[in-house]
Write a protein that binds this DNA or RNA. Structure first.
Lengths: 277, 277
DNA sequence: TTGACAACTGACTGGTTAGTCATTACTATA
DNA sequence: TATAGTAATGACTAACCAGTCAGTTGTCAA
């Protein structure tokens, strides 16, 4: 484990316990068994640490959820898996999720909200695509309401999950939420949200999806991954993206090689967003 | 306005802007135009200020919502009014509500969560009574889920309210939530929450409802209210509660006299809880 | 063994915090 | 006007904070 990862792990623990604001760098370095100076070799400031943590976890979560929604499957099953994956991710990254819910509207720094909003919007996009597959034109008027209600379900049941000490039956919970979502989507006649939310659910900033940004991510990963297949895949992927014609078959094959490595999930997500239908 | 009230008002503003943790006593006193020492004449610590603020607003909110639910009306109309009142209260005390949502799961101090939970449970009790009126036995299996879903609706739409700069059409929002609530309550077959939540929605601590506690509240108010009718009502109320036989007619009449004064709302709520069916 | 370089340390700076308390200003009664 | 009692002040303490940097330690190659 790199020093950076160690710091992130311990910081998350402390943030979850006491909140970001109330946790000092001192306490984090003590928990890590390193000196204060060593912290500043890995991160230039406390803010950078927090932003790194948000990026780190939100990328994992966003990529996983997107992957579930992109599958070629019965949309009803995907809806179930969407809920289940979401709750499983919250369980897996419980401490981070606690921090997230905790500081939610809270700022300390506008940059934090902005970053969280950015990833939130990405997930909203994926969810809207799923809703379109599920109900299509039938919920044209109410789709934003259905989206928001789904987020409300997730939000409030997550709170219970965190308040109670677990373990909950997440499969059963997801089943009941699928039922509720279908009922709401099929029966709701009155829309509330129309255009206001379009601003809130705005498209993600496009610069993230530039080819050069993706190439950078590949180069970053090249120095981190160890598996030879993955290294070669990254190398070929770079060539493909820089070449003139891109073979979908090769692309998908390469992404498949990389999909199981947590570090590469974000890259896979970015490439799929940009180059696959 | 008392000095205490001035401090509460300005503190709420600053807390809403920057969060509780990030707001110093210094800043609060500067905003009030008083010295640091003067603050400590009104509150013994920052924690006491925060707890006072929570009490102050949660009492107003709890009492108002309880009053809506207690009316003798068509339950469907009460459901609508329940939502509308909730959102109107959030709008009225927007700054406090922001602080509440902001620090939500956050502790800084366990005492804060405990207090918020206490009032949350009171509102849950009122909501469950309303659900019983609305759907009775039909939702015996799913009533806790319906309760939680209602809270999810309120939570997530409130977040939108706070994120967007308002103004939203709260009447329309409440109408759509009535529709959604009815749909969920009448159509949901699969229960998820059963007994776990009974622990979370536990009854409020009973000591709050002791007669002596209510008498104390009357005495506290006697030195604060100015309207002669209200002063006399408090005096007679005290006699009634200390006497052996309590006349329901007199009681209700007195409560009616006091109901319009914001300061007295909590007393009215307490007496109704204890002495009226 | 030596030298070069990177990793690491922790005392230190300048700043902010909650809370205290000797002192002063004000107010009301005699 | 004199006096007693209360309200208010703000300099002060001790603790903590993020971030810095001169100096130490560890490592590896020559």
């Amino acid at each position: 484990m790199t020093k950076k990862q160690l710091i992130i792990d311990k910081a998350i623990e402390l943030f979850a316990e006491k909140g970001i604001e109330a946790t000092s760098i001192q306490q984090i370095t003590e928990q890590c068994g390193i000196s204060k100076g060593a912290f500043y070799l890995s991160f230039s400031s406390k803010d950078e640490l927090v932003l790194s943590i948000i990026d780190h976890f939100m990328r994992l979560i966003t990529a996983d959820i997107d992957q579930v929604v992109r599958q070629e499957k019965d949309p009803q099953i995907k809806l179930y898996e969407f809920y289940l994956t979401t709750f499983q991710l919250f369980e897996k990254y419980a401490k981070f999720a606690k921090v997230l819910f905790r500081e939610q509207l809270q700022s300390i720094h506008d940059a934090f909200i902005e970053k969280i909003n950015y990833y939130d919007n990405l997930t909203n996009q994926a969810t809207l695509r799923l809703l379109d597959e599920l109900y299509g034109e039938r919920i044209e008027d109410t789709k934003y309401d259905v989206l928001v209600v789904m987020k409300g379900f997730i939000h409030i049941y997550s709170q219970l999950l965190f308040a109670g000490k677990l373990p909950f039956n997440l499969q059963l919970l997801s089943e009941t939420l699928v039922e509720k979502t279908n009922i709401i989507a099929e029966q709701t006649k009155l829309p509330f949200l129309t255009e206001e939310i379009v601003q809130l659910v705005r498209n993600p900033a496009p610069e993230e999806l530039s080819t050069s940004h993706i190439i950078e991510e590949i180069e970053r990963l090249t120095s981190q991954v160890e598996d030879p297949i993955e290294i070669e895949s990254l190398s070929i992927l770079k060539e493909q993206l820089q070449g003139e014609r891109i073979s979908q078959a090769i692309l998908l094959g390469l992404l498949h090689n990389l999909a199981n490595n947590e570090q590469c999930k974000w890259l896979v997500y970015l490439v799929k967003q940009k180059y696959t239908p």
